[in-house]
Simulated scan of single mutants.
Amino acid sequence: MTVLITGGTGYIGSHTVVELVTQGMDCVIVDNLSKSLAITLERIEDVVHTKIPFEQIDLLDKEVLQQVFYKYDITSVIHFAGFKSVGESVKKPLMYYENNLISTLNLLEVMEEANVKKLVFSSSATVYGDSHTPPLTEELSLSAPNPYGRTKLMLEEILRDIFATDDKWSIALMRYFNPIGAHYSGLLGESPYGIPNNLLPYVLKVASGEIETLQIFGGDYNTKDGTCIRDFIHVMDLAEGHIQALKYIQNHNGCEAFNLGTGSGYSVLELIKEFERINYIDVPYTIGPRRKGDIMTSIADVEKAKALLGWSAERTLEDMCRDSWTWANKAKGYLVK
């Protein structure tokens, strides 16, 4: 079994590649490196001690993608590639719709041509919108509050339509919550460009002195300390969840959604305080206005993944904060400033 990993040098993709190879599976990475670093491939190979086939292509180029399927004996796909910043999507919605939708449509058409009909799709908890009371179950109605989330919601609907017309497809829709952390070795982690859009990479840059102060978006939410609450999940737990989904779709046709989270929520300030406590470092911050497109509270119901995939998150918030700081200190020469 050879698994195609799109966006495999990205944050979640790279950790999933490590877990795939660790479990003895073959994979091919495709990535255009527009949102990731070429050095990440070397860092993956340092962790797993083997060479990984890599093709630098853009999924918007369908003909080049077809060549990848001719070159390798691909049997299934894990699709991570796509733009993922909520804030950027609000400012540049057309860019998000063009990239995320067309690239995925190209991938699906090429998969169909090659008779490869097993797909693990990287979705998001943003498809639940902000009208439900947590914990969020997979059966809830869907409504995304920002263009990024709407691209994920549209693609979920497309994938359900595909299965409705061809029941040979087997698709897992992975709705994950807030991935943070890094590989325990410190050799692999998140490498954001400039000022990060996600919380913990921002914390890392402030803690390391690259940025003077962390800006928290909103301190007036109806929560215990006024900041947003999120279900933070260690990226390696997330990677393991994708592998369990990949195994599941080998023997189950259908189009199933799965939450990947811990089932517990922490506020932004709680995360910062835990990071300071475990790593013995101060993280200065200011609280500014809310960011458009953010929701107040997002916590997963994880019973379905536990029951059908045999998966549950094992790592703690302490693990997430410690592993992230280990990565930041080992990778100072590689983090983009």
Rank of each mutant, 00 (worst) to 15 (best):
K91D: 11
Y248R: 10
R290N: 14
G265C: 02
S208W: 01
I272L: 10
E303I: 13
R175K: 14
P192F: 02
G189R: 09
E63P: 01
T227I: 11
N279C: 08
N146T: 06
K337V: 12
L101V: 12
E156Q: 07
E256F: 14
L308F: 09
N99K: 00
E109P: 02
Y285F: 08
Y97M: 05
E270G: 02
A182F: 04
A182S: 07
E314K: 04
I211T: 00
K205E: 01
M111T: 03
L140K: 10
V48E: 06
L136D: 09
E55Q: 10
I12Q: 04
L271D: 06
R175L: 14
D161Y: 07
G219T: 12
D237Q: 09
A257D: 08
F83Q: 08
L107E: 08
E138G: 02
T126Q: 08
I12V: 15
G8S: 00
V283W: 04
A144Q: 08
K118S: 02
A331Q: 06
L309C: 05
S264T: 15
L105P: 09
V30R: 03
L105C: 15
L204Q: 02
I278A: 12
Y11P: 01
L308K: 07
I299G: 02
I272N: 00
Y184T: 03
F83M: 12
L199H: 04
T165C: 09
H183D: 15
Y285L: 06
T137E: 13
M236Y: 11
I233G: 02
L94A: 13
E270A: 00
N279Q: 10
K51M: 07
L238Y: 03
Y97G: 03
V48T: 03
I44N: 01
H15D: 15
T297E: 12
Y176D: 11
S34V: 12
D31K: 05
A239Q: 06
L155G: 00
L187D: 12
S124K: 04
V17M: 10
G218V: 14
T297K: 08
I278R: 13
E190N: 06
G10A: 07
M174E: 13
K168E: 15
I249A: 08
N251I: 14
G293Y: 13
N115H: 08
I211E: 00
E19A: 05
S141Q: 09
V283Q: 06
L238N: 08
L140Y: 12
F54D: 10
I195A: 02
T262I: 07
R315Q: 13
D161C: 09
C228G: 13
S131N: 13
R291E: 08
T40E: 03
A207R: 00
V48A: 02
L59G: 02
E138W: 08
Q23G: 00
N100V: 14
H132I: 13
L60N: 07
T6L: 02
S131P: 03
K224Y: 10
I44Y: 04
M1C: 04
D282Y: 14
G24D: 03
Q23C: 07
S131D: 14
I12T: 13
L308Q: 11
N253W: 08
A144R: 01
R277G: 11
V90N: 00
K247A: 12
D323V: 14
V30A: 03
E318M: 05
I299V: 09
